[in-house]
């Protein structure tokens, strides 16, 4: 009950920041730009985009695929930035303002404050992910024909089945962002400089993505935090590749638990000197 009030206050604080609203607006605009660009390139159904994920060429035939294209494109940088900003700012920002000492003197409770912060980070990541999916779906419907979905495995399923798979894909991506949010929260407990924490999260993401693309390092690939992000295409097969999905979810869970424990251990024992 009191936790719900604190959570609402925290969520309102995050959603009131113009910077955060701008980030959500950006996540909404990107799928539109991608959709329009693909529409302009559409006259050559099987040309272009050869290097992209398997479903890039499918969009001309079915607008639903714009959602998968948008999610996989934004997962490289835009969605991680959105989550990094809110997560990196979460504790470090309060420390920077000096409000952290007053929240703890209220007393908000250290573990409780951390839990509420994390809840809002997850919510924000979920919002951003759903904005991408919903805007892309709407844009795809307007710009392209929509109908039964031909999966990557060649099977064709009904539109309803396709949309259900889209829902699961979106939730999978949101889970990936929740794990990144936990990493961001942990980093945020280490500093009073929000910008520093945000930058550190982004450096981590980009480093992980680069290492994941070095063939010689294939052995460590599966342990990198970003490795399983794009594995949601496992849902676009019949039957779905559940082993890959579970691997991904396990990776997210492990990162979230490890980071959460680190954040808790650090935050409940640190002197608040800001």
């Amino acid at each position: 009950m009191s936790a719900a009030r604190f959570y609402n206050s925290e969520l309102r604080l995050v959603l009131l920041r113009r910077r955060n609203l701008l980030l959500l607006a950006v996540t909404a605009i990107f799928p539109l730009i991608i959709g329009i660009a693909l529409r302009l390139a559409a006259p050559h159904p099987d040309g272009g985009n050869g290097g992209g994920p398997a479903f890039f060429s499918q969009v001309a035939g079915n607008g639903v695929f714009l959602t998968f294209i948008a999610l996989s494109t934004l997962l490289i940088l835009v969605l991680p930035v959105v989550v990094a900003v809110v997560a990196g700012d979460s504790v470090a920002g309060e420390a920077g303002y000096g409000t952290l000492r007053y929240l703890l003197a209220v007393p908000a409770g250290r573990a409780r404050l951390l839990a509420v912060k994390y809840g809002v980070i997850v919510t924000f990541g979920l919002c951003a992910t759903f904005i991408v999916s919903v805007v892309a779906l709407l844009a795809g419907t307007v710009l392209f024909p929509v109908g039964p979905v031909t999966l990557l495995s060649g099977t064709t399923v009904s539109l309803a089945d396709g949309l259900l798979r889209l829902l699961f894909v979106t939730l999978y991506v949101a889970a990936a962002m929740a794990a990144l949010g936990a990493i961001g929260l942990a980093i945020s407990t280490l500093t009073e400089h929000a910008i520093g924490a945000i930058a550190a999260v982004m450096i981590l993401v980009v480093t992980s993505e680069v290492l994941d693309n070095v063939p010689q390092l294939a052995a460590i690939g599966p342990y990198l935090p970003t490795h399983w992000w794009l594995s949601f295409d496992a849902l676009l097969r019949a039957p779905a590749d559940t082993a890959t999905l579970l691997h991904g979810l396990l990776s997210f869970g492990v990162y979230a638990v490890l980071s959460g424990s680190f954040a808790w251990a650090r935050f409940t024992s640190a002197d608040i000197t800001s």
Partner: peptide
């Protein structure tokens, strides 16, 4: 308490700032 000077959210009003601290208090 007042420790080492006031600290609030610059982008919130006085009332909203107090509401923020009040919301963090589970006994309020």
């Amino acid at each position: 308490s007042l420790v080492e000077g006031p600290a609030f959210y610059p982008f919130l009003t006085g009332t909203a700032n107090l509401a923020r601290y009040d919301a963090a208090d589970r006994t309020a």
